[in-house]
Design a protein around this nucleic acid. Structure first.
Length: 456
DNA sequence: GTTCTTTGTCATGCC
DNA sequence: AGGGCATGACAAAGA
């Protein structure tokens, strides 16, 4: 690859998919830095990687995220990994991924990373072994990914962020770690590294910030985003690995990388993504094809292509202070900065949209419940009204019958029945009942009405 | 092939 | 002023 082949990449990455996994030490970043990468391809992150954020800063950063106390890593001459999770034997132990870790030893890249100065020859398979492993396991998967990424690289290159040739070379690198096919079960991607300077450190690879359970996705892509530190190959190499390889083997490999990213709360966990689905290779439509299961989102692919040192999740979830700190301290190109901001904006908006839709749904549901309640209330009131009407009708009937009964018993002074059409019963306030001619009642009512009118 | 649903994104306004 | 959030609108992809 140009500019020193592996120089653009390096093992600042995880290995096993632990959240708390940072996968690099400060020492890995600074002390061994060769002069800034004049030859680094433009558009690719180059130069020293500053401390991503002040672990002592806001204290908000979650383990495995951007915030780390690198100074500690330096003082102990161990990687942050090691400092945090090393076991009695010096190997890194992830409590949550203990099982897989065991299974993958000794190819675990985390272990390699954590043991600067160790006898790499004892850990690293031979070039032949690695080559076989690659041929048997990684190539098929890498193939799809490379195709996929090349598509995106073209568009990215058009944006002027970097030299397309540089990028295309990346895909030609035998061990180009696009994060693909890093299925833990398939373990490593042993590839002979033509770059003499390459070391296990260089290939340490894969992200590590976001750690989740090891991704079983055949693509394994998610993790690739933060997986590469484009610094010089000299950067970040532990002192013990500065010299010739103990075994003479030019390389170590990238093993057991966890390229799993969480897409954030409310989003489908990467583990849920179907590992069987083919990578999306469509760029159809206008601009923003959705990431489907098993495929990288547009931003993830962009981030990976530009070799952004952070996962999309990290970019989105890190506190704004940390984010700005990263932007300020990292030697990122304008393209990368712009991409980072866009990724962050889109990521946050995506979550906001999801929340918004959920709220809208909740509102709709609550309104439906309210409608149901109001309908039930209306039906209840209707029943009550009908009941009242029936009762009123019954009372009227009874009153009518009583009226008829009273008049049937009444007689005038000649003993004749009283005509109910000409007379009416009038109840006095004192309880007396009088038989009054209806004419008097109607005229009296008219007078009362007249008086009411005059009052008004 | 059409319609509906889901989801990501953008634009915009508000805090 | 900048960032985040909320939300309507649009488009793409899938059902």
């Amino acid at each position: 690859a140009s500019g020193g082949g592996e120089s653009g990449r390096r093992g600042v990455q995880e290995g096993d998919g632990d959240d708390s996994d940072v996968g690099w030490s400060l020492e890995d970043i600074f002390p061994l830095m060769t002069p800034p990468m004049e030859n680094s391809p433009e558009g690719i992150l180059c130069g020293p990687l500053p401390p991503l954020c002040n672990s002592s800063g806001d204290g908000v950063d979650a383990p495995g995220q951007y915030g780390r106390d690198f100074s500690q890593a330096i003082s102990h001459n161990v990687s942050l990994h090691e400092a945090m999770l090393s076991g009695p034997d010096g190997s890194r132990r992830d409590p949550r991924a203990a099982q897989p870790q065991e299974a993958f030893s000794p190819l675990n890249s985390s272990s390699a990373l954590a043991l600067p100065g160790m006898d790499w020859a004892g850990l690293v398979p031979s070039a032949e072994t690695r080559a076989r492993s690659l041929a048997a396991q990684d190539l098929p998967l890498d193939f799809d990914d490379n195709i996929f990424d090349e598509i995106n690289l073209l568009s990215l290159a058009m944006e002027g962020g970097f030299d397309p040739l540089e990028v295309s070379q990346l895909f030609e690198e035998p061990d180009y770690d696009s994060g693909l096919s890093l299925d833990s079960s398939h373990s490593s991607t042993p590839v002979p590294n033509p770059e003499p300077a390459a070391s296990p450190w260089d290939d340490e690879g894969a992200v590590g910030y976001s750690g989740h359970a090891p991704s079983l996705s055949p693509q394994g892509l998610e993790g690739a985003v933060g997986g590469h530190w484009p610094e010089s190959s000299e950067l970040g190499r532990p002192p013990a690995q500065q010299g010739p390889e103990p075994s003479g083997a030019p390389v170590l490999e990238r093993v057991l990388h966890n390229h799993t990213y969480s897409l954030g709360p409310g989003l489908p966990a990467p583990e849920a993504l179907s590992p069987c689905l083919p990578r999306s290779q469509d760029g159809r439509g206008s601009g923003y094809p959705r990431a489907r299961e098993g495929a990288l989102s547009q931003d993830e692919r962009h981030a990976k292509t530009l070799r952004l040192p952070f996962s999309v999740e990290e970019i989105v979830s890190m506190p704004v202070d940390s984010f700005n700190s990263v932007l300020a301290k990292s030697f990122l190109t304008d393209t990368q900065v712009s991409l980072l901001r866009d990724i962050r904006r889109r990521g946050k908006n995506k979550v906001a949209a999801q929340n918004c839709r959920k709220r809208k749904l909740d509102v709709i549901l609550s309104l439906e419940e309210e409608v149901c309640g109001l309908q039930a209330r209306r039906e209840s009131l209707a029943r009550e009204r009908a009941q009242c009407r029936r009762a009123l009708h019954l009372m009227k009937q009874k009153l009518h019958h009583l009226y008829q009964d009273v008049f049937s018993r009444l007689r005038d002074d000649q003993g004749r029945p009283v005509n109910p059409n000409l007379y009416a019963l009038h109840c006095g306030q004192d309880g007396s009942v009088l038989i009054v001619p209806k004419e008097l009642i109607t005229s009296s009512l008219k007078r009362d009405a007249q008086k009411e009118k005059e009052r008004k």
